[in-house]
Design a protein around this nucleic acid. Structure first.
Lengths: 205, 205
DNA sequence: GAGAAATTTTGAACACCGTTCACAAAGCTT
DNA sequence: AAGCTTTGTGAACGGTGTTCAAAATTTCTC
C-alpha cells in the first residue's frame, strides 16, 4: 500500500526531474510551470503542493547539479593526497580542467548555479550554502600543500580567489561574446593560469 | 521649429535615461515598460516607436555603462606608456582595481553587461561588440610590455584570460554568496592575483 | 488657409507568466 | 455508510512585454 506521503515524494522527484530536463534543454527561461504540470501529469496548482514556489524548484535542481559537479571533481583528482608541490599543482590543474569540462557538458544547468538570484529579500537556505562550501575542499587541500606556512583562513581566502578566477575564465569563455577566450584555447589558458598562480605562490618574493 | 525627428531623438534619450535610472535603482528585473512610459510621459505603445523592444533598450543602457567604464579605466592608468616591467605590472594592478571599484559603484548597471542574454537567436549588434573590444587596450598595452617576445595574438589571448580571471573574482566577490571572497578582502586579493600573474609571466620557466 | 493625405500617438486587448483559492474529489475515521 | 479531513483541480488574478485599429496630429497640396 502506497501512502500519500510516499506518492507525493515520488511526484516531487518527477517534478525535479522534469525541471532539470527543461533547464538542460531550454535554459532557466525555458522553465514553465504549466509545461511541468503537463509533463508530470498533474494540475497546475498541484505543483505548489510539492514545492513552495519556482525558486525552490530551481534551488533543488541546483543541488543536484552541485552534487554531480562534486563527483566530477572528485573523479578528476587522484586518490592519494599530494605530498610534493608539483603534485599539488597538477591536482589543482586537474580540478580546474574538470570544472571547465563539467561546465561545458552541463552548460545550462551549471549556469543556473550562478545566474539565479533569489526573489527580493528571500534568503538562501542553509543546506544550499553548505553544499557550496564542501566543494572547496577540492581546492583547499592541494593549496594547503602549496602554502605550508600560511594560516588556514588565509588558505581559504586564496582558495576563493583562485576558484573565482578560474570560474571567470570558464564563464566568459563559454559565453559566445567576442571578449571571450576562444573555446578551442580555453583548456590551455586555464591550465596556464593555474600553473602561473602555482609558480607564483611557490617562488619567494 | 522642432522637427518630428528631433523630438523623437530627445524622447529616446529620455527613455534611456529613465531605463538607466530604473536599472541602477532596482536592477534589470525592475525595468518595466509601463513605468518607463509614465516616467517619460508617453503612452505605453509609444516606447516601441523609440526602440524595437526592451532588449535594444537594455543594450543602449549597456553602451553607456561601457563608455563610463572605459573612462574610469582610462583615468586609473597613468598618462605615459609604461617602459619597465614594474611600471607595466603597476598599471595592470591599477586597471584591475579600477575595474573592481567601478563594478562596486555601479553594481546593477555593471551586472547588466554580463547577465543580459539576447532573446533566442537574436544577434548582438556590431557596435556593441566593437565597444567591448576597445576596452581591452587597457590590458593589452601594459601586457605587451610584460611579454615582449610573444606575438600579438598571443598577447590578446592572455589579455582575455587575465580580464576574465579578474572579472570572475570581482563578479563572485560582489555577490553575497558565501563562496565569495569577502568584500573587505576583495581589493587585496585582486592586487595579489594580478601581481602573481605578472611575476609568473616575467620569470622564466 | 482649407482640405486631404500621411504620419504618429494612443491605450485597450492579446498572449503569456507565476501564483492563489473556492470548490470538487478522494481518503480516512468512526 | 456517514462525516470529517486532506488533497487535487483549473478558472481567475495580477503581472509582464508586445501589438494594432483607431484617434489625434502633423505634413502636404492646391
Amino acid at each position: 500500500m502506497t501512502t500519500t506521503a510516499e506518492r507525493r515524494e515520488r511526484q516531487r522527484t518527477q517534478l525535479i526531474d522534469a525541471a532539470e530536463k527543461a533547464i538542460a534543454e531550454k535554459g532557466l527561461a525555458g522553465l514553465k510551470a504549466r509545461e511541468l504540470a503537463q509533463e508530470i501529469g498533474c494540475a497546475l496548482g498541484a505543483i505548489y503542493n510539492l514545492v513552495a514556489d519556482m525558486d525552490e524548484l530551481v534551488l533543488r535542481v541546483g543541488s543536484r547539479t552541485l552534487a554531480r559537479l562534486d563527483a566530477a571533481l572528485s573523479a578528476a583528482e587522484g586518490k592519494d593526497t599530494p605530498a610534493s608541490t608539483d603534485a599539488a599543482a597538477d591536482r589543482l590543474v586537474a580540478v580546474a580542467l574538470a570544472y571547465c569540462a563539467f561546465a561545458r557538458d552541463n552548460l545550462q544547468l551549471w549556469r543556473v548555479l550562478f545566474e539565479h538570484r533569489m526573489a527580493e529579500g528571500a534568503v538562501v537556505p542553509d543546506w544550499a550554502v553548505s553544499e557550496q562550501m564542501t566543494l572547496f575542499r577540492h581546492i583547499l587541500e592541494p593549496l594547503s600543500v602549496l602554502l605550508p606556512d600560511r594560516s588556514e583562513p588565509e588558505c581559504m581566502l586564496m582558495s576563493r580567489t583562485l576558484f573565482s578566477a578560474v570560474h571567470g575564465v570558464v564563464a566568459i569563455g563559454l559565453e559566445e561574446k567576442l571578449i571571450a577566450v576562444p573555446r578551442q584555447d580555453l583548456d590551455r589558458q586555464i591550465e596556464g593560469l593555474v600553473r602561473l598562480v602555482c609558480k607564483g605562490l611557490s617562488v619567494p618574493d
